Structures are given as C-alpha cells and as structure tokens.
Amino acid sequence: MSGESGRRPDARTAAVPAGLLAVFAHPDDEALLAGGLLARHAATGARTAVVTATWAPSSPRAGELADSLAALGVREPPRMLGHADHRVPASAPGRSRWCDVPLDEAVGSLVAHIRAVRPETVVTHDAYGQLTGHPDHRHTHRTVMLAVTAAGLGHLYPEAGEPWQPRVVRLATHPHSAVAELGELLGQVGKSALSVPDAHVTDTVDVRPWSGPKWAAILAHRSQAEGERALPAILSRLPEETRNRLLGTEYYTRVTLGPAVP
C-alpha cells in the first residue's frame, strides 16, 4: 500500500473543521498543558480526542479524566492505554510501566489511535517533559514523534488501520521568560522547573476566553487538586487573579510534517 492512501483533502475544502488528537502521559496533563487549546478546538465542533498513556481504565483517575474532558467540551470518551505510571505501580496493576514499554509496541498503539481519529493536528509533550521532566512525559514525546510519521506509512503497522498523516504536531512547552513564578511555586514543594529558550516557542496561545472550562477541567482531577505537591493542588491555593495569569497563556513548538511517503 502506498503512502498516497494516507493523504486527505486540504483542510480549507474539508466539510468539517480539522480534527485534533492530544496524547499525554497522565490524567490531568491534558487540562494543565493544553486545556485552553482543547476547549477552543472542541467549541468549533471539530473532532477532538485525547489519548492518555497511564492509569487503568478501572481506576478512580479514569473517572476524573472523563469529567475533565466533559468540562473542556470534548465529546469523545477518554482513550486510555492503561499502563502504569512511572512512580505509581498500583496505577495499573499487572501492567508494565509506560516508560518501560518497548518502543515498537508503544508506537503501534498510538498509530492505531491516530488512524482511528484522523487528526490534522497532534498535541503532546515537548522533549524535555515539561517543567518536572517526568520520564513518562519524555517517553510519550518520543513515541508520538515516531507514531505521527509511522501512521502515514501503509507498510508499517498494517493491522492498525488505513494510513493517515497528520499535518502538524504541537509540543506543549514553557519558555524561560514565562516560567519564573511557576518555577518558584514548584520549588516550594521540592520540584524542579524545566523550560526552553523563548526562541523554541512558535505558538503563543491566549486561552483566557476558555479559562473557565480549563480550570473546571483541572479541578475535575480531584485526587490531584486535594493533595499537597501536585500542580492542581498548588494552583488551587493561589488567588484567582494569580491563577488566571499563570493559566491564561499556553505555549507550543510547532512541527510541520511532510506528506506521506510511498
């Protein structure tokens, strides 16, 4: 099968708005890192879906994830790969940790979701793993960057469906100039704050019009918002004005993909 099958009509002539697939490591990443973008996209009526790599679909956090997506206006149910969190083996009893999954297997699982959703844009973690550099975040980034190319090649993972080549990957990130305040808050609970040079940021998105849905989605992750060290808990202790300032802008590095290759 040639790569030609993986192409699709130009977005300008498509009958519906271009679809978006977000792929993140943990429940709550979708709300914290791209909640405004997801809410904005879902509001257009475009297909919007989220893949989460860790935690079992039977765990309490699966219900929190479903509530988060509902708050963002995402109509599709969560797509959970069901692997264990790097630091919480009990998150998926009997399953391997996501960061230990062989790369070929991990890529194949994401290719299946990309071909099923057929998005124009895929959103995921940057190479550094955002702020804390979590191993699951970095593994998700590596896997997505391979999967978006593999999804357009018919001879790879033929059992995963018809080829489909996304046009763009947006890597959620944090520039040096915008991380000082958030880094100080994380430092107070013993966490690091990784950021990238401002030149790495290609898309700065004002998501203040969607601050209500975004905050509701973050709060939907109740197990995190009621703790001490998790970012939702840290944010919930802040004055509303400060919180809105920290959450009102999202930053991305845009990677444009070429057409599928035969």
Rank of each mutant, 00 (worst) to 15 (best):
N244I: 00
A31E: 11
L186T: 04
L21V: 09
L185W: 08
G183Y: 05
P78W: 00
P197Q: 08
L146S: 13
V179L: 12
S68Q: 11
E184Y: 07
A66N: 01
L171N: 01
P9M: 02
H125D: 11
R170V: 00
R170E: 15
E228W: 05
G258D: 05
A34F: 02
P259T: 09
A127T: 02
R12K: 14
T140S: 09
A172E: 00
S2C: 00
G183C: 06
T124W: 03
L65I: 04
H134D: 11
T140Q: 04
I218G: 06
R237E: 10
R12A: 15
H137Y: 10
A46V: 12
R208H: 07
H83L: 13
G129T: 13
G161Y: 13
D126A: 14
P102A: 12
G227K: 01
T44Y: 09
L21M: 09
H86C: 02
A84Y: 02
A15S: 14
Y251E: 02
V117L: 10
A147M: 04
T44P: 08
V123E: 06
Y157G: 05
E162T: 15
Q224G: 07
A180L: 07
D198M: 05
V107D: 03
I114K: 11
L37I: 01
V205E: 14
S96G: 12
H174A: 11
A43H: 05
A34L: 01
V168H: 14
V144K: 09
A25F: 04
V255M: 13
G183W: 08
G82W: 03
T242D: 10
V122Q: 12
Y157P: 07
E240Q: 13
A15V: 14
A147N: 06
D85C: 14
A25V: 06
W210G: 00
V255P: 06
H125F: 15
V144T: 08
S68T: 10
L21P: 09
G73M: 13
L131G: 06
A92F: 02
G190S: 07
H139Y: 15
L182G: 01
H125N: 13
G82V: 05
Y252P: 04
P9G: 03
S2K: 01
H26V: 05
L153F: 11
V168F: 07
P166L: 04
W164I: 04
I218E: 06
L21K: 09
E250I: 12
P259N: 05
P259Q: 08
A39M: 11
W210N: 01
R47D: 10
H155L: 10
G129Q: 13
Q224Y: 12
V201R: 03
A18S: 14
L156P: 05
P9R: 08
D100T: 10
H176K: 08
V179D: 06
W55V: 07
E241T: 15
R138Q: 15
P17E: 10
A233G: 04
